[in-house]
């Protein structure tokens, strides 16, 4: 059980890293707009990223 003396401090270090990352993302404005990013995934502006073969199959359907 003595392992918790190592594991819990490691967990706390990881948590403080996560907290730091969270603060950084808030301060750099990533949470400013909570609405439009949810929609942006729906736009079909990635057509040039679809491989040639897959594109053909899509047309046949």
């Amino acid at each position: 059980m003595d392992i918790i003396y190592l594991l819990i401090p490691i967990a706390i270090i990881l948590v403080s890293f996560a907290t730091w990352a969270f603060f950084w993302s808030v301060n750099s404005g990533q949470f400013d707009d909570l609405e439009s990013p949810a929609h942006s995934i729906l736009y079909d502006d990635d057509e040039q990223l679809i491989p040639e073969e897959a594109r053909k199959k899509k047309d046949e359907h």
Partner: peptide, 27 residues
């Protein structure tokens, strides 16, 4: 709506010389 944001961002980013264009839907 969100489509306006998308339209504005894409139209602007296609212009030569624009480095970054981001539009906030809420504000």
């Amino acid at each position: 709506c969100a489509a306006c944001v998308w339209l504005l961002e894409h139209h602007l980013q296609r212009l030569d010389g624009i480095e970054k264009a981001s539009v906030n839907l809420t504000s």
